[in-house]
């Protein structure tokens, strides 16, 4: 009996250590995404670096936890990319560089709206995928967190407002979609 308990305790520790070591690799996409952020938006403030670190921690944690957390983080990473690149596209359409969005009220408003709109659409996509997952709430939570951090690397440049906009867009698009798809399925 004592032997079995000791075995379980040691086996659990080996399992967790192995999972943690294996999950470190899950953070690799953060490096190219940070590079993309710097290329598209410049590095005027240390905010993207801090957010990238947070994103890496979130990715590792989700991979270590596994199951819906891990599945959601992968989808969330993809869902956050539109919010990451949309401001640059909008700025390019206006014939400006992204970093000039704060120069005028119109520019920053257009950028913020595009960012929130892209996040909203990404949130809907997350919701559709999450609704088919066995653990929809965990999947959604993980996907929205990772997507918000990914998008915030760009929008965070304009301050907390941009990051909040990304998060709000994702929550407003994602959560109702999960509920709607689940309701129509049952």
């Amino acid at each position: 009996m004592e032997r079995a308990e000791e075995t379980l305790r040691r086996a659990r520790r080996a399992y967790e250590t192995s999972r943690l070591a294996g999950s470190l690799i899950a953070a690799w996409p953060v490096a190219p995404l940070l590079g993309l952020t710097v290329i598209l938006h410049g590095l005027a403030t240390p905010a993207p670096l801090v957010i990238a670190m947070g994103l890496a921690v979130a990715m590792i944690t989700c991979a270590w936890r596994g199951r819906a957390w891990q599945r959601g983080s992968m989808v969330g990473l993809a869902a956050g990319i539109p919010a990451l690149i949309t401001p640059s596209i909008v700025a390019a359409l206006r014939g400006e560089h992204c970093s000039a969005c704060l120069a005028s009220a119109t520019g920053s408003m257009t950028c913020a709206l595009a960012c929130i709109g892209a996040s909203f659409l990404a949130g809907i996509a997350v919701g559709v995928v999450a609704a088919s997952d066995r653990e929809a709430s965990r999947f959604t939570g993980s996907a929205l967190t990772v997507a918000a951090l990914t998008g915030a690397m760009a929008c965070g440049l304009t301050g907390l407002g941009g990051a909040v906009g990304v998060a709000a867009g994702l929550v407003l698009g994602g959560v109702p979609t999960v509920l709607l798809v689940r309701q129509s399925a049952s």
């Binding site: 075995t7 086996a11 080996a14 399992y15 250590t17 192995s18 999972r19 294996g22």
Partner: peptide, 17 residues
């Protein structure tokens, strides 16, 4: 043999992936 079985369980849990 008991030690071998215990080491096996630990290795199985470590190599689960």
């Amino acid at each position: 043999a008991d030690d071998a079985a215990q080491d096996t369980m630990i290795a199985v849990f470590r190599r689960m992936s």
